[in-house]
Amino acid sequence: MSTTVILANGSFPQATVPRKILQNAQRIICCDGAAATLLKANLVPTAVVGDLDSLDPELKRQLQDKVVHIPEQETNDLSKAFRFCIQKKWTDNIVILGATGKREDHTLGNISLLVDFAKTSPDIKMVTDDGCFQVLLDSSTVDAIPGQQISIFAMVPDTPIQSTNLKYPLNGLIPTAWWQATLNEATDTSFTLTFPDNHPILIFKANCL
Rank of each mutant, 00 (worst) to 15 (best):
V68C: 03
Q14N: 10
L113K: 07
L108Y: 13
N24Y: 05
S112K: 05
L22N: 02
W178D: 00
T3W: 11
I145F: 07
W178Y: 11
E185I: 07
S54F: 12
P169A: 15
G172M: 02
Q62F: 15
N184V: 09
D105E: 10
S190K: 04
S140Y: 10
K102T: 12
T187S: 00
W178E: 08
T100C: 01
K80S: 11
D32F: 00
Q180R: 12
F133N: 01
G33Q: 08
L113V: 11
Q162C: 06
V48W: 03
T37S: 04
A181L: 03
R103T: 07
Q73N: 00
S112A: 11
R19F: 11
D143N: 10
K205I: 13
Q87E: 10
P45T: 08
P71A: 08
R61T: 13
T182D: 03
V17C: 06
Q26I: 04
N9M: 09
I86S: 09
A8R: 08
T3E: 13
P18Q: 05
A118N: 10
L136G: 00
D129F: 05
E74G: 15
V48N: 00
A15H: 14
T141L: 09
C31S: 07
W178S: 07
I94H: 04
T141Y: 07
A25P: 01
